[in-house]
């Protein structure tokens, strides 16, 4: 019964408390190193002499996290629906806001990237459109969460919504990338990492890891708040503030 001990909010609360500072240290170190490496160790002049590629570090990290956290949200929702464990629902609810914020950073930096490289603030390029749609899915999830008062129903309903969203997402991806099947040449965009110089790639990955640690830290903090809110009148919470 070693691991399942932590599926009870009462045990998970102190565990999360201990983990949070570790994730914060990891996040600060990784992001600092990633950005330092990105700004100082990468070649000063790139082939097309554009200095704005530094935006990529934040943009790639944030959009990865935006997508990854949506996946986590769906996962925790699914686990909650199957095992009916309250904690997994709490994790799903905690992930939503951080995921939405990460997606917001990805969207804004994507728009700025569009401005510097294509000249317009918004370009209906499939990737930008998809991250806009993912943002709508986040907003829909959070709207449903806050519209339902009873926590049990809110958790389950939003878990179903997240599942529905993730089921339709591939179809949306296909329809955005290939709106006109007649002349839809290549659906698979070549991954934009092929020609990237090693140092930039390293900086990008390290920054992304830093964003991942940051997301975990904030999600754990929010989960602790949710646990306190929902278990406010239990015995162990009352003891909590004694020490």
């Amino acid at each position: 019964m070693s691991l399942f001990k932590y599926s009870a909010p009462m045990n998970f609360y102190p565990l999360a408390g201990r983990l949070i500072p570790l994730f914060w240290i990891a996040a600060l170190l990784l992001i600092a190193f990633g950005l330092y490496w990105g700004f100082f160790e990468t070649p000063y002049v790139l082939s097309d002499q554009k200095q704005y590629y530094h935006i990529l570090f934040v943009h790639v990290a944030a959009s990865w996290m935006g997508m990854w956290l949506y996946g986590m949200m769906v996962f925790w929702g699914l686990v909650g629906l199957i095992f009916n464990t309250r904690l997994s629902f709490m994790m799903a609810k905690a992930t939503a806001v951080t995921g939405a914020l990460m997606q917001l950073i990805a969207l804004v930096s994507g728009a700025v990237w569009g401005k510097v490289s294509w000249g317009t603030w918004w370009e209906w390029d499939p990737r930008l459109t998809l991250s806009l749609i993912l943002m709508f899915l986040y907003i829909g999830y959070i709207a449903l969460q806050s519209a339902i008062d009873d926590p049990r129903r809110a958790d389950k309903a939003s878990a179903v919504l997240a599942l529905l969203g993730s089921a339709v997402l591939p179809v949306i991806y296909y329809s955005v990338n290939c709106p006109n099947p007649n002349e839809c040449a290549s659906l698979h965009q070549e991954s934009s990492f092929k020609g990237v110089e090693f140092n930039i790639l390293l900086a990008m990955l390290v920054t992304a890891l830093g964003f991942w640690a940051y997301s975990f830290a904030t999600i754990l903090m929010r989960v602790r708040n949710i646990i306190l809110e929902r278990e406010i009148n239990t015995q162990w919470v009352a003891q909590l503030s004694k020490n």
């Binding site: 749609i133 709508f136 899915l137 907003i139 829909g140 709207a143 449903l144 519209a147 339902i148 309903a157 179903v160 919504l161 529905l164 969203g165 339709v168 179809v171 949306i172 296909y174 329809s175 955005v176 709106p179």
Partner: peptide, 27 residues
């Protein structure tokens, strides 16, 4: 079904469901 009996259900449904209608709109 998800927004049954909620305040402001009508607007909420569109916020939830419109993104999922996109493939139908596109094709």
């Amino acid at each position: 079904a998800l927004t049954l009996g909620l305040r402001g259900g009508g607007v909420l449904i569109s916020l939830l469901i419109l993104p999922l209608y996109l493939p139908v709109l596109v094709y």
